[in-house]
Design a protein around this nucleic acid. Structure first.
Length: 271
DNA sequence: CGTATTCCCTGCACGC
DNA sequence: TGCGTGCAGGGAATAC
């Protein structure tokens, strides 16, 4: 589901809602078979802890408490929402964080591609592959991007989505960023000029920032934990717009499949 | 080695 | 209406 802007939206929302009652009374698990099975001990260990703050790295959330951190990845359909204890549960509510004061933070995830784990002390140990640059970091520049894809010949869109190169950009934003950059998604990364890398890094930052400002893209089932829908889907210029007129030149938007993922682009605006 | 495909899972839109 | 098919924002294993 969520790419960097949606995860960041969830982080901000969690930070806000946990300000009042940051103490976890207990954690209840209704299904432990998420992407990776959760050990039973995982749930009992959080009893009575206090949540200090919530961080994001790549598409991961780190809920830091006074007794250690909880890392969470939302997969495709994972989400949090705040409810009352008496409120009816939904089919795919898998984990409940009962907070002091009566509210319950619920983790819902129909496809169960998401997961949680105990913070291992460093991000290097969270994912199998080393994580790439944070696109919103100042250090992530065209030169840096060019350097990190050196020698790779795959389509630029696939590499933009490669979390070993740069993190947080998923299928929606990759199409949007390349449209704004004027670069065809299937173009080999080896044939992308430095000036185009400049545009790609610039628009990556611009698009991701704007999406965060807009509260993320509410496609299908993404809503922020406080219930508000993100509004950025209304600003999608190519994603899911096959055959619809390009917002710039009216040429019908095309859809191709790259690495098994739907990819949208304008044949006139992108070269 | 890099790259492409497949799989994990449920829900939903679509065509017949 | 009902059923089969394909597809969905991620990531990792497997196959080439």
């Amino acid at each position: 589901m969520p790419e960097l802007p949606e995860v960041e939206t969830v982080r901000r929302s969690l930070t806000e809602m946990l300000k009042e009652n940051p103490e976890i009374e207990q954690v209840i698990c209704r299904r432990k078979d998420l992407r990776f099975p959760l050990p039973l001990k995982f749930f009992s260990s959080w009893k009575g802890c206090r949540i200090l703050w919530v961080e994001r790295r790549a598409k991961y959330l780190l809920i830091l408490t006074d007794i250690g951190g909880l890392v969470c990845h939302l997969g495709m359909t994972g989400n949090f929402r705040l409810i009352e204890r008496s409120e009816e549960r939904r089919t795919h509510d898998h984990v409940e964080f009962w907070l002091k004061g009566g509210a319950v933070l619920v983790y819902e995830d129909p496809r169960r591609f998401g997961f949680m784990l105990k913070w291992p002390g460093s991000w290097d140990k969270v994912s199998r592959e080393p994580m790439g640059s944070e696109p919103l970091d100042e250090a992530w520049t065209a030169e840096e991007l060019k350097l990190s894809i050196k020698g790779r010949k795959g389509p630029i869109k696939t590499l933009l989505m490669d979390q070993k190169i740069v993190v947080g950009i998923g299928n929606i934003y990759a199409s949007e960023i390349l449209f704004k950059s004027g670069v065809r998604p299937k173009r080999s990364a080896a044939r992308v000029k430095l000036q185009e890398f400049e545009r790609i890094t610039f628009y990556s930052k611009q698009v991701l920032r704007a999406a965060i400002e807009g509260g993320g893209s509410s496609i299908r089932d993404f809503h922020s934990p406080q219930g508000a829908d993100g509004g950025f889907q209304n600003q999608h210029q190519v994603y899911d717009r096959e055959d619809k007129p390009c917002v710039v030149c009216s040429t019908p938007i095309r859809r191709i499949v790259l690495s098994g993922r739907s990819t949208f682009w304008c044949p006139k605006c992108q070269t």
